Amino acid sequence: MKDDRGPLASATSWLAIDVGGANLKAAHSSGVVRSSPFAVWKDPAGLGRAIAELAAAFPTFERVAATMTAELCDCFETKREGVLRIVDALREGLPDRPPRFWGTDGRFHDEASIRSRPLLAAASNWLALGTVAARAVGEARAILIDVGSTTTDLIPLVGGRVAARGRTDVERLQNGELVYAGVLRTPVCALAVELLFQGRPTGLAAEFFATTRDVYLTIGDLEADPDDSSTADGRPATRDRSIERLARMVCTDRESCSADDVAQLAKAADGVLLDRLVDAARRACATTIGEPATAIVSGSGEFLARRVAEAVVGPRGVVQALGDLWGPGGSEAGCARALIELLRGGERGDVLES
């Protein structure tokens, strides 16, 4: 009798890995998910070791699936080189288990295929999550809003398929389907040239003094982590330190302004980012599906994705959070978790051609 339950039916277990430039994310077919910070551009030679360390934290597995965005890191001469170096790192970190790579054509590919056509695997992770989200909403006109630490994906969905016009990063940036801003790593000076401070529009320093992580620590949307010093000034990721970092954005400090003054600045920065994402989402949908009735939200910035979704679908729309389905860790590592779902459902992802 033919077993048609997909690749997972014949394998004991899978590990799916999403290799990002700043974070490694992985999901196991048992349901376990984990994320680990790793700055690829600082230590590209250590990527294989980092992958091995992350994989060692999971239950045993027999096979590996992978997707990526780290090929854009400027430690690589080109994206082609980046893909090939990531392929090498996966083989180094997970020897004897050659990965299957998800491509921007909505299919899995073996290593030889990706080595011959590297750009097929470049920045393909969004399509994995979008394909799973499209299947979940069925025929509805919908949008996937995935807000991460660094970028935001705004993917129109219709008829159970991804309706995005772009496939490459450039095309998606041009169509509003990718916004290079997130809730942790984006420099505040990249959001605006001025923000409201002490009741007045105030110009911002074009310096790497603070990031959106400081904005959302100050507002209270993110939890403090005193042990984490991967911040603009290398000091802990706490609210007090975030207030100090944000104060420098308007060339002042804690002795010259109040916490309330800085909170106003943070709220203004949040408002600018929210408006930018809402405008991009509407632009992404306008020429593909029209006004969406449903939104699926995910990512480490799911809280912001929900606010974007509520503005885009309106009071009569439906907002579904992957965090409710997969848990906060599964939402943060959504692209890796999506690979597991794709393997369960069969190898080919349905993609609406533009």
Rank of each mutant, 00 (worst) to 15 (best):
T12S: 13
T12A: 15
A16F: 08
A26I: 07
S30K: 01
S30G: 14
V33A: 10
S36L: 14
F38T: 00
G48W: 10
I51F: 02
L54D: 08
T60R: 14
M68D: 03
A70Q: 05
E71Q: 12
E77V: 03
R80K: 13
V83W: 09
D88L: 05
E92W: 01
G93L: 09
L94H: 09
R100I: 14
R107E: 12
F108V: 02
D110L: 04
E111C: 07
T131L: 08
A134Q: 03
A142E: 02
G148Y: 02
T152L: 05
L154M: 06
G159A: 09
R165M: 13
R167Y: 05
T168D: 04
E177I: 02
T186F: 04
L195V: 04
F197N: 07
Q198F: 11
P201D: 07
F209H: 11
D214A: 08
T218N: 01
E223Y: 09
E223C: 08
D225Y: 02
G234F: 11
E244R: 01
E244F: 02
C251T: 13
C251Y: 15
S256K: 12
D260K: 07
D261S: 11
K267Y: 15
L273D: 00
L273F: 05
D275E: 14
A286H: 13
E291C: 11
A295T: 09
S298M: 09
E302I: 07
L304K: 05
G329R: 14
E332Y: 10
C335N: 11
A336T: 02
L339W: 03
L343I: 03
R348M: 11
R348Y: 11
S354A: 15
S354P: 15
